[in-house]
């Protein structure tokens, strides 16, 4: 009888220890997500850059877009101003908190749009141009350890907690040592793979780490893909008036 009690106590101990270990593991993954979000935010400084987008479309061929990006993460603001191609020059996206506006210079009109929408028919979403919000917008469903190329990674399964993000399920490949997202797979509600993102190059600007090369692969239409490279990075102060509708109208005159 004593033996039975002893065995039961051992089993309970093992179970309790494994639960504690699991909770600690999940806390570690939560810390990684917090870290990802924190290191993607320009708190206390502005950020501007030039984005060169190469949009590969099986039907339309290859198109090159040049976009000026201005970001102020304090207040969740950004302005994306299209410079090339010439037919789209001056079109802009202005984010003011929860509101995203699109400006069309040919009609001089603004219209509401969403961070979830695709950017100009490319494979990028409007949400890709701001800071990340993995810790607040998703909950952890599970994780694995693995490798991607020559990098040791955590493969983290996330589920969206609300419908403010473009995709309800995301799988992240995050490096163990430096906590950088190398790859993402984004899924629909029915868990169909919609888009794969690759982030092979990063740079450090102050305390912020940003990807300077991104590839978004359309998983619905084979051959459609968008690569984005970031250049002319600056953390200089951006005048307040740049993040206004009036500025977009003025710069288009």
């Amino acid at each position: 009888m004593k033996k039975v009690h002893f065995l039961a106590a051992v089993l309970l101990c093992i179970l309790a220890m494994s639960l504690v270990a699991q909770a600690q593991d999940l806390r570690h993954i939560e810390e990684i997500l917090d870290n990802l979000d924190a290191q993607s935010r320009f708190d206390g400084s502005d950020f501007s850059a030039v984005l060169t987008m190469i949009v590969e479309d099986l039907e339309q061929g290859i198109e090159k877009m040049v976009v000026r990006q201005f970001r102020r993460d304090d207040g969740e603001r950004f302005l994306l101003l299209i410079q090339e191609p010439v037919t789209q020059r001056g079109q802009g996206y202005l984010l003011e908190g929860d509101n995203l506006w699109f400006y069309d210079p040919s009609s001089r009109q603004f219209a509401h749009t969403s961070l979830k929408e695709t950017f100009q028919g490319s494979d990028a979403r409007n949400a890709d141009f701001g800071s990340s919000s993995y810790s607040s917008s998703y909950e952890i469903e599970g994780y694995l350890e693995g490798t991607l190329g020559s990098f040791e990674v955590y493969i983290i399964d996330l589920k969206a907690v609300d419908d403010t993000v473009p995709f309800p399920y995301v799988k992240l490949w995050v490096t163990k040592d430096s906590n950088l997202v190398l790859k993402t797979e984004e899924y629909s509600l029915t868990y169909r793979l919609m888009r794969t993102g690759l982030f092979p190059k990063y740079t450090k600007v102050g305390n912020v780490v940003i990807p300077v090369q991104m590839v978004f692969i359309d998983e619905l239409i084979e051959g459609n893909k968008t690569q984005i490279s970031v250049s002319e990075i600056s953390t200089n102060d951006i005048p307040d008036h740049v993040f206004t509708k009036a500025y977009i109208e003025r710069v288009n005159r």
């Binding site: 190329g149 020559s150 190398l182 190059k201 990063y202 740079t203 300077v212 893909k225 250049s231």
Partner: peptide, 22 residues
């Protein structure tokens, strides 16, 4: 492109990028 092969050939994820300070 293949994700594994891209990350296989990389020594470092960090690329030197010039920042504009004008």
């Amino acid at each position: 492109i293949d994700a594994d092969s891209i990350f296989d050939s990389l020594d470092s994820l960090f690329a030197p990028v010039e920042t504009e300070e004008d």
